[in-house]
Design a binder for these strands. Structure first.
Length: 266
DNA sequence: ATGGCGTACACCGTACGA
C-alpha cells in the first residue's frame, strides 16, 4: 500500500500529470491540496476512468483539497468530513475519510492545506496558528477512535533549518518561525509521528521549489509537505521519499509528491 | 525595495502564494 500527498496547484491544470503519476507509481491513496476548483468542476470522470474514487472539498480559485483512492483497494469509504468539524471556515483546507480496506483494516486519512500565513504577525499568520490549533484538537479526537490514522498535506512549515536551502535568510520568518515549529511539535504531541524521521534521506531533499529564478534547477527548495501518522501505521512503514520527477515536467506544480509505502498487501 | 513565475478570474490588472 502506498499513500502520497501532493499540492497540485490547480487540478484542472494538473489532472493529466497527476493521473500519469498515479499510473506510474500505483499509489493507493493520494491526498491533494490546492485543487482551486469547485467540486462540480473537479475532473472526477478522468480519475474514475483510471480506477480511482474521488472525494473533494473545494472552492473557487483558492485552496481546496481532495482524496483519490484506488477503487479496488477499498470495500467502502466512510465518515467523509470537509473542513475541521467545529471550526467553521470559508476556506476549504481539510478533507478526511475512513478507508475500509480490502484486507479488513480501517485507515483514516486526512489531506490538509495549512494556511501560508503570509508574514509573521499578519492577520493571516494568526489565522494559521488558530487553524493549526483547531486541527490539533480534531486530531486528538480522531486518534482516540481511529488507531490507524494518516495526516498528510502541505503544512507550510519547515520543521527544521535543514528543511530550508537558505536557513539564514528564513530564520524566524514565515514557514520557519518558532510558533509555527511549536505548532508542528503540538501535532506530534497529539499522537502523530513524522514518517520522515523513519527514513534515511539525502541532505537538501525538498518538496517545494519556487517557480522563479530557476530554483528547481539549483535545488533552492524547502521541505514543507509532510506525512504524519499514528504509531500503528508508522510501525508497518517500509519507506518514505519525495518524488521530484514531476517537478521537472513542463508546466509542473511547484510542489513534489511525498510518498510512504506501508507493508500491507493492497 | 521590488520582482522574479504561475494560477484564477475576468481585468485587460489584481490577488495570492511560500
Amino acid at each position: 500500500m502506498q499513500i502520497a500527498t501532493w499540492n497540485v496547484n490547480s487540478i484542472k491544470m494538473r489532472a493529466e500529470q497527476v493521473l500519469g503519476w498515479l499510473s506510474d507509481t500505483q499509489t493507493t491513496a493520494l491526498l491533494m491540496q490546492e485543487t482551486k476548483t469547485l467540486d462540480e468542476a473537479f475532473p472526477r470522470e478522468a480519475f474514475e476512468a483510471a480506477g480511482y474514487r474521488v472525494f473533494t472539498c473545494g472552492q473557487k480559485t483558492y485552496n481546496g483539497v481532495a482524496l483519490a483512492v484506488r477503487a479496488e483497494a477499498v470495500d467502502a469509504v466512510e465518515d467523509i468530513v470537509c473542513n475541521i468539524p467545529g471550526y467553521p471556515d470559508a476556506q476549504k483546507r481539510l478533507i478526511a475519510a475512513t478507508l475500509q480496506l480490502r484486507d479488513g483494516r480501517r485507515l483514516r486519512v486526512a489531506s490538509a492545506y495549512f494556511p501560508n500565513g503570509q508574514e509573521v504577525g499578519a492577520d493571516k499568520y494568526l489565522y494559521k496558528l488558530e487553524w493549526i490549533a483547531a486541527l490539533t484538537l480534531w486530531v486528538r479526537r480522531e486518534l482516540a477512535r481511529e488507531p490507524l490514522f494518516v495526516l498528510g498535506g502541505d503544512f507550510n512549515i519547515a520543521p527544521s533549518d535543514a528543511d530550508l536551502w537558505n536557513p539564514a535568510e528564513w530564520r524566524g520568518k514565515i514557514l520557519a518561525s518558532a510558533p509555527e515549529r511549536s505548532a508542528w511539535a503540538g501535532l506530534l504531541a497529539a499522537g502523530l509521528e513524522d514518517s520522515w524521521a523513519q527514513g534515511l534521506h539525502a541532505p537538501e531533499t525538498y518538496s517545494w521549489w519556487d517557480y522563479r529564478m530557476s530554483a528547481f534547477e539549483k535545488n533552492h527548495g524547502m521541505r514543507i509537505d509532510h506525512l504524519l501518522a499514528s504509531h500503528a501505521v508508522i510501525k508497518d512503514m517500509d519507506d518514505v521519499w519525495i518524488d521530484a520527477r514531476p517537478r521537472a515536467l513542463e508546466k509542473p506544480s511547484d510542489h513534489a509528491p511525498v510518498v510512504m509505502r506501508i507493508s500491507w498487501p493492497l
